[in-house]
Write a protein that binds this DNA or RNA. Structure first.
Lengths: 330, 330
DNA sequence: TTGAAAGCGCTAACAA
DNA sequence: TTGTTAGCGCTTTCAA
């Protein structure tokens, strides 16, 4: 059955040091071992270059010290920002990161596969319907959800408060005299999009006239969306995220519409290029690493057998830059 | 010893189906089992909701179906692009991705820790000295190196051919009449930077006057580097990568220097924003996902016991855009 | 403090 | 084709 010939096992160490495997195990675990024995073991471990087989440890201990993270797209800086935050915390705590890209295989399969090899999972799934999520998550515990708010799902959730940020953004625009706003919307299923819409609904109560246009997924979709939005003669364009905003800016330039003189534009997420662009894009800083950190903390407390708060948000800050100016109609 | 009470094991299934555990194992592995038994097992598996414990499988089979990837920074789109490529291939092949961010803990510790829990590792380490790498990698096999060319390191290596791309770029500039070039250099230890410098050396043979200035790591460093480079009155600025290029563009704008009329600028990597920027940045498409794919293929053949080619490159293409124009001195 | 022994849950050689 | 048996390499109870 020797699949791993030549491997130095704990038994080999025990024999060479003339102690029992249990003693070696204890020594390695930092438990009290008589100094002479400890020294013998230490010497043999070094001489033989022994490295414990962590898979065997995992099996024996019923835990893996690994946590899984499922993201929809590894190439999207938004999710890798979250990953960074999780990774930082997890690695400091001696945990490893098993990553699944659910853009590749069916989301549920990815979740299950990832979850099998770790102690808990953090799920970023902006689009899966609540019911699907609820049923899946039940078999995945301990699990933490990122950027969702679905009370029906039996798992703690952490999210960025995009609603407040959007309120602040629209409030600011209205103070600058903007009355006709157009929203280049993201995917309807996304909770984060719903939150932004809610904020726009609020703005309506304060006299804003809001046009909502779906921005779709591709640059061409955005072009179409911008053209459609312009029909309502808005003085400000609010984009679902920075990428949509940039595509919109490109279209406005083509049309000879000046930003911010003729129309103001805002993004969301504050990706790195936002402040490098010309004009620099007014956006909302969405602190992905902090979100990841929070997600880890919640999962961590779950692993410790505690019962963390069911839903937590972190706030996002508006970054005022050059694409917003007073309304030309003021 | 029951650390996992209530778990449905293969033995429980075997008893309920009145067969041996081996039969259940075979059934699950898709080996031939008499139809009646197979059906009984299938039914029980479903009824009990049995899920094999993959950790136990890993131990018994001496493999994990997981590969490790170590990157210097999970938030850097360059590396996550590679990660995407690896993840895509690996997941399709039924492998999982264990990710280590070596920016967090000592690089060697991260490598070791990651390698312990998987069948092989892909290492992205632009800065570690060859000797360090060589020694470390020896204990990490099977391992594959990304974007390095270090013949002394006992592991296959894959890289983007930035040398050829840089040759093409400088050749193009010279054809446009540029003679005084300035290179805003990246980290000297990085092989990719050395490759770019080699190309510039070649350009010298063809009559180029090349100033090399270290661009450092921060935006302020770049400002200083640009100012220093301008002292040589270059007509073209070649940046180590797009981020440096954007920072340089910002500085040139501040100084009232027009791009591309007064000076041409090029980037490297072709990050998404490069083509959205105004003016759109001439850059070099560095296909990270393809690089990741190649890295996986090499590791995969290593896992299969084959001996892959020691060093492979993929080519990068110059993307001609708006920041390059004929030299004003032509 | 130490060692013997019994697991952790699964796979695979072997014999039937 | 099937069951028996012996691992995979480590941890942990238990008794000494």
């Amino acid at each position: 059955m020797a699949r791993t010939r030549g491997t130095v096992t704990i038994r080999a160490v025990a024999e060479a040091a003339q102690v029992s495997p249990a003693t070696v195990s204890r020594f390695l675990a930092g438990k009290t071992v008589r100094p002479e024995l400890a020294e013998r073991v230490r010497a043999v471990v070094e001489e033989l270059g022994f490295r414990p087989n962590v898979i065997a440890q995992d099996l024996a201990q019923g835990r893996t010290r690994t946590i899984g993270v499922a993201v929809p797209d590894l190439e999207n800086p938004y999710f890798t920002g979250i990953l960074k935050g999780i990774g930082h915390e997890a690695q400091s705590a001696g945990y490893h990161l098993l990553v699944g890209d659910s853009g590749i295989a069916p989301e549920l399969d990815v979740w299950r596969a990832v979850r099998q090899r770790c102690d808990g999972i953090i799920i970023c799934s902006p689009y899966a319907p609540d019911e699907v999520l609820a049923e899946a998550v039940a078999r995945l515990t301990p699990a933490v959800l990122v950027n969702r708010c679905a009370p029906a799902v039996p798992a703690p959730q952490v999210a960025v408060d995009s609603h407040s940020a959007m309120l602040e953004l629209t409030g600011h625009l209205m103070n600058l005299g903007h009355r006709r706003l157009a929203y280049l919307a993201g995917p309807e299923q996304a909770w984060s999009d719903q939150e932004r819409r809610r904020a726009l609904d609020a703005a309506r109560h304060f006299g804003a006239e809001v046009t909502v246009v779906s921005a779709g997924a591709t640059a061409e979709d955005v072009v179409r969306a911008v053209d459609e939005a312009l029909a309502a003669r808005p003085t400000a364009l609010l984009a679902f995220n920075d990428l949509v905003a940039f595509a919109a800016l490109a279209r406005l330039r083509e049309l000879g519409i000046k930003v911010p003189e003729d129309v103001s534009v805002t993004g969301f997420d504050d990706i790195p290029y936002a402040r490098l662009a010309v004009p620099a894009l007014t956006s909302v800083r969405s602190p992905q690493p902090e979100l990841g950190t929070l997600a880890w903390q919640v999962l961590s407390s779950l692993l410790a057998g505690e019962t963390p708060v069911g839903f937590q948000t972190i706030s996002a800050e508006v970054q005022h830059r050059e694409t917003v100016a007073p309304s030309p109609e003021r």
